[in-house]
Nucleic acid binder design. Structure first.
Lengths: 131, 131
DNA sequence: ATAGGTGCAAACAGTTTGCATGTAT
DNA sequence: ATACATGCAAACTGTTTGCACCTAT
């Protein structure tokens, strides 16, 4: 009868639940460490893997970025990556006819969209020095 | 007076020019190695960096994938990633009102779109066993 | 001749895994 | 009691860097 309830796993779940946005493994480690001081990175990675397998988590992979993790069950959506603070946010909806973007001969089965810019906490961005 | 003309750099350029699609550093190494047998990975990475700095190349970063490199100067476009052979292809156009996808308070300055599916060489994909 | 380039190996970051110990059940 | 989980350290992948040697200019 697998799947035990350890304080480590509990802390990792809590970190992700309270974040409100996708977290990296390092961010999970940092947040969960304050609840379980001796927590090791391997334990975080193992639990993230387990939570993915349980479909409790979903991976958020952005170009050139380390993998982030968010709570699953949110339905089809995409992400916004703040160019200033680096945080990643969920976008609410997904519209658009993406299969139409592919040339003849390509069969489109899925798509990914990432928006870049400045999040509410960072906008407006620094202007170039006014003349 | 920097920037010499070595056979290594020449082979790396040729590999990318003849590929017709974005290549990984490993793919560049493999292709360029047939022209310059002793070629080392570090040399490939250093030249890729240089060619990026010269804007002769552009990075192609897809979620969860190693960086690929394509010739620059192609204008704004996106990519198609084949789920079967793993190759990456350029898509011709980019249409759509992406800024409209962001909630209030977010300032959108750019976007990325990746289509997934089966390329002409791989489509149609394997069907699930017919009943 | 000499600055810049190359190749090897060591160093890195992020992630995974082996193993002895710890602990929830 | 015992199977699963943890923590450390070693291994791994992709990439970068230090350094002695090589080569295009």
């Amino acid at each position: 009868m697998p799947a035990r309830n350890t304080k480590q796993k509990e802390a990792i779940r809590a970190a992700l639940e309270s974040a409100g946005r996708p977290l990296t493994a390092d961010e999970v480690l940092a947040r969960a460490k304050s609840a379980v001081s001796g927590l090791g990175a391997a334990t975080v990675y193992r639990n993230l893997r387990t939570l993915l397998d349980e479909s409790w988590l979903a991976e958020v992979q952005l170009p050139g970025e380390v993998t982030r993790y968010e709570l699953s069950g949110k339905g089809h959506h995409h992400h916004f990556h703040c160019r200033l603070c680096g945080q990643v946010f969920e976008l609410p909806a997904c519209r658009g006819d993406f299969p139409a973007l592919a040339p003849k001969g390509f069969e489109v089965t899925g798509h990914e969209v990432i928006l870049y810019g400045y999040c509410p906490g960072c906008a407006p961005p620094p202007r170039r020095p006014r003349a």
